[in-house]
Each structure stands twice: as structure tokens, then as C-alpha cells.
Design a protein around this nucleic acid. Sequence first.
DNA 1: GGTGTCAATT
Length: 708
Amino acid sequence: MVAMQYNLHQLKCLRPLFTRFLHQNASPDDAKIYSILASSGLSKAVSSLFSSPSPFSFNLYQHLFSLCASNRSIIDARKVESHLTTFATTPPAFLINRVIECYGKCGCLSDARELFDEMSQRNGGSWNAMITAYAKNGCVEEGLSVFLEMYGCGVLPNEVTFASVLVCCGGVLELGLARQVHGLVFKLGFEGNVILGCSLVDVYGKCSVMGDARKLFDETENANVVSWNVIVRRYLENGEGREAVFMFSEMIRKDLVPMNYTVSNALGACSSIFALNEGSQIHGYSIKINFKEDYVVLTSLINMYLKCGALRDARVIFDRLGTRDLGHWTSLVSGYAKHGNIREARELFNEMPVRSLISWNAMLDGYTHLSQFEEALDFVILLLKEIRDIDYVTVGLILHTSAGLLDVELGKQVHGYCYRHGLCSNGFVVNALLHMYGSCGNLRSSRILFYHMGPQRNYYSWNAVLTTLARHKMSEEALIVFSKMITDSETKPSNYNCGTVLSICANISALNTGKEVHGFMVRNGYIVDVVATGALVDMYSKCHCVEYAFKVFQRAACRDLILWNCMLLGCSHNCKVDKVFELFELMDDEGVKPDNTTFQAVFIACINGSRVELGRRYFDAMSNKFFITPRLEDYESMIELYGRNGFMKDLENFIKDMPFDPTGPMLNKVLDFCRKHGHSSLGNWAVNRLNDMNPSDTYRYEPMEQVG
DNA sequence: GGTGTCAATT
């Protein structure tokens, strides 16, 4: 790569020399134009062509066309062409090819095509120029049709042709066509060409067949930095972040120095899989290869740190950034909001020098994400004062807000807005409407919308229906809808849908249906992700099949904290007391840090198994070893544990040592235990506290009569 | 002749 850059640099230095060379060896007529060009610029030079009614040298025309192309100066280009065609009787094909290229670069395809169609003697270069012109301007179908015509005329394509044809293939995304072109590249003996190989990898990647892309890449003998860039990029785009990061590390292992864009793509891949460790390593490496100040790399670094929740690191880079654009600000606002730091997000938002609709949407998304719907609504009012044209994202978020506030009137207003602004055909918007009407209990509207969506329905729409039915105590109907979803096979259920249905099964203890869903997933080759695994574990546990739950848990490819908690809670609720303690130790061994929910499961097990001493130890370990602040429910668990087992002295010490005043329900509990186990001093203490809290009710301590 | 950062989505 270094060598290539050097050559490019050299060429740039050579250009004035070359021009002078042309100038010096030019005919007197040409020389006049060259000197006008040097002194007064392109347009003056072009105009002065017409002072001479005879043709200039082909070299001069060629030079002028290339200047017009790089300046994208279509007016001058047309003038030069007109001079050429007027005074030179039969301009050679190569010169007409340059004109076609020039028009192509200026984006004037009709001019290019007209010229191409009028050519009496085309050569291979003419076809190439035309195909390239189409490819460069995104007219990929036209490019391909010219290519087919060319092939049909018996003109053999060369590597230049294929380079543009492959760009077109990458645009139309037709895998069959790509394979045919690949076959042709091979047949005509260009398979060793790095650039074409790279383009083919690119096309396969764009068609989402990464297996083929990778195979071809591995077969490339001398892959260069561009080839590596392509493979990393396409893995990232196809959602295979891990593989993208791996390829990047391979590239470095082979001592190739990546381009800034490749570093950026690798960082994007880290973001996509939340690989903070790898991301920071790449950060270090990027400094080593002198990208410390590179705008592209820095931007991706900020984004990576934000996505991984390392807000401080992101902020440090942001603060040091020379020029910050709207994107940087918006990224930061969105990152802070997404990680729950809504106050900082808002402060940043307020500080922004300029805001776009996207910035407003990002902030609004922060509020809705945290279910702060009142704040979201206030923010919407502000937004509407500032911004005239909102888009479907804003609309979706406002609908989400109405759903959260159960405000169907607001929802209907937004629906009207969508109707007036033609947003009702947008999939996102309709789904948001579906969700809104469902949440607000307007099942009729929700049903009509769903019916009218027809083929536009996707897994999200189905999920909206499923959750709506479940929420309105129509779980059986939800199960019927799901089975319809499968039999109609209109939309393939996503992991998400399966998870929703499993949780419905769990809630109504529909073990058989739950098993069917599980079977369906296995039979249809679903990659059961960590979320779906959690849903399965939860379903089996709640249906009292804790053994099944455990099997699913053991087979999970990865176990995050939530999944551990699912399993622990499943065991606790099914009174598998010792299993809970066993799992807790295993979890610790695997290095997964417990949270409050984990301890809830542990305390339930202690209560169910009357393991008072163990419970005490866990409660202490919670703050001392794991640095987790016990919550109200943890204190409640300990009260239950001591009280239920008659550990009245411990209960008394515990409740009087709490860092906050006991709540009413806690005191009532204590009172119950005192009555049961006969502990008058604590009982009276609890009564006094209760009476202090609520002078209108009067409590009295009366020990329960001992039974039996 | 190939690659190409970053921002909001129900």
C-alpha cells in the first residue's frame, strides 16, 4: 500500500511536467490554447477554440476532455465536443471514447449514450466507456444490458469491462447473475486478477453469501489491503461482527497495514458485538500505525466506546476532537441516552450548536427507551415547536409514547397526521400504530389495521398482536394466532415471536404448547439465542419441568447474567434448594457477576429450605464480597427468613440495624412473627412504630395462642 | 478497473 501511495504521489508531481511537455511539443495552434489554459483557465481556453475553424490535435482534445471530466464541467465538455465534431471530419474511436467517459463522469448519461449510439466504429473501449458510465452513476441495469449487448455482438470483455460489470452486479444483487459473470471471468482467464477477485468477493458479500465470498477470498493469492477491507466490511454488514474482527486480526497478523476505513470497519464490528476489549486493543493499534489524528478512525472509536457503554472513553475522544460535526454530537446524545444517562444526554443535547431531526429523534428515543413517557411527551411538545417536518421515526416514537401513557387520543391524532402526510404506508409507522392501539386496549382498531396490512406484516406486527392479546388476558387466542402464523407461513416467526409465545405459555402453564414451540424451533433450525433460551428456561420452570429447563440451560451456547438468573429463579420457585446454591457457586466460577435478582433467587431458596445461616452469609457477602447494595426486597427476604424460622433475636437485631426505617408491611410481618413465636418486646416495638406511622389505625400486640 | 467512517426505528 505504501508503494502504491508513493506512485500516486509521484504521478501527481509529474502532471505539470507532462503538461509542459505537451505544451512544448505542440503545434502553434495548440500552443496558443495551452497558454490560455495556463493563464486563464479551462473555460477561457475552451471558448477560444472557436477562434480557429480547423481541428486541433487529438492530444489537445483529449487533454481538454480529461480536464472537463475532473472539473465535472459539462458545459465546457459540450463545447469541446462540438468543436471536435464540427471540424474534425472523422474523429477516431479512441477520442470519442474519451468523450463518453467525460460525459459519464459529469453524470450526463443521455449525452454519453447518444454519442455511443451514433458511433460508426466502436471498439472494445467504447463499450467499456459506456458500461463504466452507467456503473458510476448507479444505472446498474442499463450497464448490464449494454454488457449483454456487447457480449451478444461477439466483443470479448476484458478486465476493465468486468470491473464495471461487477459494480453493476453489486447494485442489482442478483446472485444468479453474479455467478454467471464469475463463470465468465474464470472462462476468459481473469481469475488471477486481484481487482476482479476483490470485486467478486464484494458482490458475493453484498448478496449475503459470505460462505462464497470467503471461499473466493481464501483462494486469492495476493490479497491486498483493498481485498481485506472488502471482506471485513461485508462480514460486518452481514451481521457477522465476530468474523469481521477475526479477519481484521488476521490481516494484522500478516503484517499488512490497514487503511483507516478498514480500522473503522473493524471498530464497527466490535460495536456490533459489544467487544470492548478488542475495540480498545484496536484503539491502541491505531495509534501505533499513526491514525491518532485520523478523523475516520476517531469517529468510529467514539461510536465503538458509546455502543459498548464506555461513555467516559467516548467523551475523552469527543472532547479532544478538533472539529465535531452533527453526527458526533448526535452519537453522544444517543449513546448517553441509551445507557440510561438521560440527564447528561439532555445536557449535551441542549449544548448542541445545531440540531437535526435525527438529534431530536435520538433524544426522544432515550426517553421512550427508559419508559419516561411524561418527559417524552414534554419533549415532543418542544420538538414540534422547533421542527416543522417530522418523519416516520418521530411518528413511531410519539406513538410509542402514546402507548406508554395509554393515551389513545394522542395516538389517534398522530394516526390522523400519518394519514394526511402519507405515512400510513410506512411499515414502521403501521406497526407502531398497531402497538399503540393494542396497548391502549383498542383491539378493534388494532385488528383492522393488522388485517389491512396484508403482505406488509412482518414479525414485529405479529408480535404486537401476540403481546396485545396476552396483555388483555386472551392468552389462548394468542396461542391460536401463533399457530396461524406458522400454518400460513406468511411471516417466519422470529426468535422474538417464539420468546413472546413461550412467555405466554409460561404464564398460563401451557406446557404442551410450550413444548411444541420448542420443537418447532429445533426442527426449523432456529439459532436459539440467549434471549430465546431464557424464554425456554422460564417456560419449563414455570410449568414445573425444572429438569427440562436445566437441560436447555446446559446446552446454551453462551450464558449471560439474565440466563443464570432465569435458571436460578426456576430452581428456587421449584424448591430445588441445593441446586440453587450449587449453581450460584458455578456462576461465580465462570466469572459471571451476580446482581440483586440473583440474590433474590438465593434468598427464596434459603427461605424454602429454612437455611437461615446460609442466608445470613449470603446477605453479608452481597455487600462485602460482591459490592451490591441490598434493596428493599432483600431486607424483606431476610425478615421472612429469620421470622419464619423463629430466629427472633436475629430478627430483632436485623430490623433495628437496617439503614432505613422499616416499612409498614415489614412491621406487619414482624408483628405476625412475634405473635406466632411469642416475642412481646419486639412485638410491642413493632406496634409502636406502626401506630406512629399511622395514628388513625391502632395496633395492639396480642400473642397468638400456641396451637398443639 | 475494485474498497469507503459516524447519528434516530416501531
